[in-house]
Design a protein around this nucleic acid. Structure first.
Lengths: 249, 249
DNA sequence: GCTCGGCCTTGACGCAGATCAAGAAAAGGC
DNA sequence: GCCTTTTCTTGATCTGCGTCAAGGCCGAGC
């Protein structure tokens, strides 16, 4: 936290790992230059809160690396996660100065931030930014609606399988082991409690269902976090999705 | 259906009831003229399906009047409503030619449609449209996330109270009876089954919880659809929301 | 008028998942 | 190394909601 703004040097946008997926993805080099002038980096440690719901929010930004969660809490303490922020995901809403949700760093997180006023200014004059933000927001809306089906209609086992297959699919593109065998290996980026918050379950139920999926051979576990999926289509079936549906995405 | 395009005359945009809330809200009169040239109306009867998920979709549009629902189905028949489309809400996603959800008219519905290609064209050249669509999409995303909390963490009674308070709040602005008394009167636009689909419940549970709220004096019923809320803040408490939260919206 | 079909209510019962509780297994901290 | 804390697992019991079933209400059609 102390050296929030002192990353040895602010890296060049052209070398940024999220250059082609973040809100700046469509920017031409001249537009990128302008963004470069107003950007700054912030680092957050695992477990640290990035923003509290209701707080004044004077910046927006993109997750560069690490994982953060977006969640909503009721007064009595019940909480529901409403978003999982991965690298390139955008935080904050242009035009709104109060945070609507709690944002918490799950792992160490680096964010590329912009003060709100200059960014909104720039968005007005740069359709490429607004266009990309619209596209990203539409994707998030689709994801949220997909999740509503999970929360409203799936059983605990299906919920776990759904979450695992989403994480697996994301990693599949990178860490495919044995091309076309359908085997996927990954580490869970979430605690059992965070998974429970995501799925609208208790942590005990999450634990039990994971054990059950292991016992039934749907997944294999090494330690508590390292997961092997021997047969992706089997996992998708357990999730209650059409096993073919995954290819669409 | 037969006279889909033969509404006596296509009304002028300047007299359109959703002129100031739909995607066209920010358009200047010259922009509006261009939209006017490519728009057409379609009518759907109550109960009729507007689009099936997976169908090719060659238009986008706004709900002008009536109510429609957006829902997702699993193969075994379980369904989850993921959106409630009210006048001014937008249907379809620019850039996508296949419908992602089922859209069904709950009441008679009139839509103001545009063929996709010309509309996307126009969106490219008219920032006012893209800006408004972004704003609307962000609002929908907020609503979807709010709903995730309802689906994931609220009890059946709280779910019903949440739905009622949303409908009540929407009507409150129009039909306020006795200003400041907190009394709100409205008609439910949904069947018990549709409410169940929205809330991730069964229709029996919906019925039971409505009866319970009536017995406890939280709501009054005339017939099955006409609802009186004698004390809005009481209803909000039952919904598990901060009773003050409503003023923010 | 009567009957039919859609919509809704209510009761009885069972089960999936919550709750309560105890302890095991890692992960730090010193 | 040991001790504390966090994270996870598993068991026992409870309960809210789903499921199955029967019947009421009301508008539409004849």
């Amino acid at each position: 936290m102390l050296n929030e703004r002192s990353l040895s040097a602010v890296p060049d946008c052209s070398e940024c790992p999220i250059r082609h997926r973040a809100v700046c993805a469509r920017c031409e080099s001249d537009e990128l230059e302008k963004l470069e002038q107003i950007k700054y980096y912030r680092k957050f440690e695992a477990g640290q809160s990035i923003i509290w719901a209701g707080d004044r929010m004077d910046f927006v930004g993109s997750v560069v690396s690490g994982i953060a969660t977006l969640s909503q809490a009721m007064e009595d303490g019940r909480t529901q996660m409403v978003g999982l922020l991965l690298p390139s995901d955008f935080v904050g809403r242009p035009g709104r100065n109060v945070a609507a949700y709690d944002v918490v760093a799950t792992t160490d997180v680096v964010m590329c931030c912009f003060r709100r006023a200059p960014f909104e200014d720039m968005m007005q004059r740069t359709p490429h930014i607004a266009q990309r933000l619209l596209e990203m927001t539409l994707d998030e809306l689709d994801a949220a609606r997909e999740w509503m089906l999970v929360l409203g209609r799936k059983t605990a086992r299906e919920k776990i399988a759904s979450l695992l297959s989403i994480i697996a699919r994301r990693d599949a593109t990178l860490n495919m082991r044995g091309p076309e065998t359908g085997v996927v290996v990954f580490d869970l980026p979430l605690t059992r409690e965070a998974m429970a918050d995501y799925l609208g379950l208790t942590l005990e139920t999450v634990s039990r269902q994971i054990s059950a999926l292991r016992k039934d051979g749907v997944i294999e576990l090494e330690g508590k976090r390292h997961v092997t999926v021997p047969d992706m289509s089997r996992l998708m079936e357990e999730a209650g999705d059409d096993a073919d549906g995954g290819l669409l995405v």
